[in-house]
Amino acid sequence: MERTRMQMMGDKPKIHPTAPLVSRGLAASEKGGSSQSQSQQQPPLPLRTMPAAMQSSKPQKTRSCCCKCICWTVGLLVLLLVIVGATAGVLYLVFIPKIPDYSVDSLSISDLRLNFDMSLYAKFDVKITANNPNKKIGIYYEKGGLLSVWYSNTKLCAGSIPKFYQGHRNMTKLDVSLTGQTQYGSTLLRALQEQQQTGRIPLDLKVDAPVSIKLGRLKLRKVTILGDCLLVVDSLSTNNLISIKASNCKFKLKL
């Protein structure tokens, strides 16, 4: 009856999608959503990096160059030290150097007085003997040598050592005039007078002599001879020869 009614109305029957088609569309949409979520959740691929060997090639080359430079420098320094030591050893064995020594022959006082400004003026005359004990070494005494007399860490007077050349195994007599002026002279003169009553006055004679050494025909660079002579004299009376009761001298070479 329904069919006849539809035929009579002249309408075509409407077609509705079946359930399997709808479920397939839902499944496809779900699959697409799941693949999209998986693509969103998948971590990004790491950037391509250079191999470790290629990255570290330049620092390794730099370090190797530095190590080679350091090794060459140390090797050259060691070689230089060996050459210098060997040369010094050969020179020592050939020339057998010895430090010159000095002795104080006499000491006299020309003037010792108190000035108006209460400073102490002193003038000493010292005769010394310089001895060069070396067989193959000559000594040039250069300008600037100094001889000084001290009492209780106070310099009384000083004088210049003359410039001269001293040959092999030579003994040279030197006469040096020393003058000086010291502040607080009254206190110093009083101490010297009190010391003179004992008959033993300690004095310190210091030598500072720049010299050049001659090895054969070769003249080496300048060095300094430092000397220290501890003297004990009986008096400080002027214009009289002073007796030296004790003398102890030590010398060293300053390069």
Rank of each mutant, 00 (worst) to 15 (best):
S103V: 09
L236N: 00
L91S: 12
R200C: 05
K31N: 08
L226W: 02
L255M: 10
I99A: 06
A52I: 07
T129R: 12
K98A: 11
L218S: 04
L45V: 06
L81W: 04
G138C: 08
C157P: 07
D175V: 09
G216T: 10
E2W: 10
W72V: 13
T198P: 03
L77R: 13
L241Y: 01
I242V: 11
N132H: 03
S106D: 08
G216F: 03
H168L: 09
N248K: 13
S212A: 15
L120P: 09
P97G: 09
Q183E: 07
R48A: 08
W150Q: 13
V233H: 01
S247L: 06
K163Q: 15
P44W: 07
Y92I: 12
L26T: 08
P202T: 05
Y184W: 05
R200T: 12
L114M: 09
K173I: 11
L21A: 10
G33E: 11
T182N: 01
T172Q: 13
L236Y: 00
L226A: 05
N134E: 00
K222V: 09
S35K: 14
S235D: 02
V126S: 12
L112H: 02
R24C: 08
T198C: 00
F124P: 07
S247I: 10
R169C: 04
V211K: 10
S212P: 01
T154R: 07
G25N: 05
L120R: 05
A52W: 04
A19Y: 03
P13Q: 14
G75E: 04
F124C: 07
L220A: 14
L188G: 03
I161W: 09
K206H: 10
N239W: 01
L203Y: 05
I225N: 05
E30Q: 11
S235E: 02
S148T: 13
L77F: 14
Y121A: 13
M50L: 14
A27I: 05
K250D: 12
S160I: 15
G159P: 03
Q195A: 15
S35D: 14
Y102D: 02
L205W: 01
L26W: 06
V207L: 13
S186Q: 15
P59C: 14
R24N: 08
A130S: 12
M50N: 07
S186T: 14
D117Q: 03
I109S: 01
K127T: 14
Q183Y: 00
Q181I: 02
F116Y: 01
K250P: 00
N131V: 15
T18D: 15
V126F: 05
L107F: 01
L146A: 04
G185V: 03
N131D: 07
F251V: 08
